[in-house]
């Protein structure tokens, strides 16, 4: 069960990628793990019928169905006709979007959401491409500013703020 089982695509070397079967197997294994966690938790609290269902009753029942369904998916996955999930180059593109986005979420805590958004925009736009530097600069400054105005000032919705906002007294 190799995760990165390349499927032979003789016509185009660029169209390689993880097989759909491998992804199906990984997903169903994760689901089986989740089902086990649910069952463990539910039976730990009591999943019986004590003058009416206990708090674990429904999660446990759903958990069993879930487990059965996931096991079935696992079996089904092995019978999956060979196909690729996505090509490596496609996945690379997705990773290029995911990377900055994860960075953004990491930065929200120390820098506040506005500065993080500015950095995110400035990193994201060149990666995706198709915008000139002044557009990038303008967007990454204007978006957080507009958000700040709308949420912080107009609607008084407090969002995470960092040292920069603190300097201005917010």
């Amino acid at each position: 069960m190799s995760l990165s089982a390349d499927i032979e695509q003789p016509d185009d070397p660029g169209a390689r990628g993880p097989s759909k079967r491998a992804v199906e197997i990984v997903v169903s294994l994760i689901l089986i793990g989740l089902a086990a966690a649910v069952l463990y938790d539910s039976y730990g609290r009591g999943a019986g019928w004590n003058g009416g269902p206990e708090s674990g009753f429904f999660p446990a029942r759903v958990g069993w169905i879930f487990l059965a369904g996931s096991l079935f998916l696992l079996v089904q996955a092995f019978r999956e006709p060979p196909a690729i999930f996505a090509t490596w180059s496609q996945l690379l593109m997705v990773a290029k979007v995911f990377g900055p986005l994860a960075l953004f979420v990491v930065l929200v805590e120390p820098l506040g959401i506005y500065v993080a958004a500015a950095i995110f925009t400035a990193v994201f736009m060149p990666i995706v491409g198709g915008a000139r530097w002044h557009t990038i600069l303008l967007t990454s400054v204007l978006v957080p500013l507009v958000c700040f105005f709308v949420f912080e000032i107009e609607f008084l919705v407090p969002l995470p703020k960092g040292p920069l906002e603190a300097m201005f007294g917010y």
């Binding site: 995110f120 995706v128 969002l159």
Partner: peptide, 14 residues
């Protein structure tokens, strides 16, 4: 897309 996508993602996060 390069302009709209980051805006969408920031607004989603907010």
């Amino acid at each position: 897309f390069a302009i709209v996508a980051p805006i969408i993602l920031v607004v989603c996060a907010i």
